[in-house]
Design a binder for these strands. Sequence first.
DNA 1: GTGGTCTAGACCACA
DNA 2: GTGGTCTAGACCACG
Lengths: 124, 124, 124, 124
Amino acid sequence: MLMEIDMKSDIPIYQQIRNQVILGIAAGKLLPNEPLPSVRQMADEIRINMMTVSKAYNALKTEGYIVTDRRNGTKVAELPQATPEFMKQLYTSLELVLAEAVIHQLDDLDIHAIVTQISTNFKN
Amino acid sequence: MLMEIDMKSDIPIYQQIRNQVILGIAAGKLLPNEPLPSVRQMADEIRINMMTVSKAYNALKTEGYIVTDRRNGTKVAELPQATPEFMKQLYTSLELVLAEAVIHQLDDLDIHAIVTQISTNFKN
Amino acid sequence: MLMEIDMKSDIPIYQQIRNQVILGIAAGKLLPNEPLPSVRQMADEIRINMMTVSKAYNALKTEGYIVTDRRNGTKVAELPQATPEFMKQLYTSLELVLAEAVIHQLDDLDIHAIVTQISTNFKN
Amino acid sequence: MLMEIDMKSDIPIYQQIRNQVILGIAAGKLLPNEPLPSVRQMADEIRINMMTVSKAYNALKTEGYIVTDRRNGTKVAELPQATPEFMKQLYTSLELVLAEAVIHQLDDLDIHAIVTQISTNFKN
DNA sequence: GTGGTCTAGACCACA
DNA sequence: GTGGTCTAGACCACG
């Protein structure tokens, strides 16, 4: 699992980690039950503090994307079901992103094309 | 222009304002060249600090969604063209949102359906 | 809000804070919309680190017991509704506590008496 | 004695074992003087470390729920009397659990109903 | 002023 | 070995 962290970004490091893990799972680079690096390990790799990684893992745990097994450390969770709350939140996020696209004069075809492209990448 | 601000949200207020304006433009509730309320006016309406509104307007200006005309105050900009940088940023945002959707086991049909629904709403 | 923290307890400090806040709300010592001390303030009072208080507040936020308003700091949330998940978790917790009571030969009358006593204290 | 251990729970495994034994005794599934499986046996069954089971048994011994007889191994203790210390600890535990119930707007009737339901289950 | 983030250490509980 | 907790500082974003 290669982490690309931008220390200069205004997105908190722990969020960047969270995002990368989510992208990794969606792309199939991280499969359910696959172990994640330990908090210490990843902290050493990225050269950041343990607490920061821990924060990222806690967020992912709360969201149900990963679970920690007391014996084997942390691993990717089974794919969760979409709850109504998730759908609502998804709709809101998507609405904002697409609003910007629409304002930049992308039409339906353009948008669906990008969506398809992203989906296709996830499947490999 | 009705602003719905949630003081308890974890999204900064100035961002919420920015988002609402963007949604308003995409939905056609705010048309190009339409004037926006002055900073003071909006600050009074929402009962927040003028600085906060100013910050939102500045963000929107930088992103090219609104323009300030010395005589007439602030108004909605002409619809901008999609630059390569915009496309890149759009791709990144969309990728993360869709990643979460995919992990929650939504398939292509589900996702395109939601996208279509959002697009349709923008057209009214 | 008087906090009684036992540094020697094996219960983490942040959990103790969490528990005290919950007891305070149930007892009506902390009313909905009443402001809680700021993270710094409470940390100074108890002479512990800010992060520890922050962790307690975050837990309480996630559980819906408190909310933080970006303008006025943190305050007690409106009383939440009991969700099915909450009922399930409540049942499990209660079951374990009562099991110990039953083993210690407390009968139904004893147990209901204690429950009534606790409830009564909450109402003052 | 069927043990249900959740490796992904945030409750330590040794505590889960302890809890299950207590629930078993209260429910009458484990009777006083009934022998418990040996540490090795249970460790094998659940496929965990012997140390973990040992820790659970030690906790239960300290609390007076089980006794170790040099000849016959470990067995369920005679039902203990409620000491003042136990009552105090019981009160504290119960108070916290009920506090959460009260905050979730359960009234006395609701709470007593749940208590009765749990008690009834113990009697079968 | 508030809370959020982060560091560079440390100690402990669990298995 | 793992993750969890905690400290004593620091800087930043928000309003």
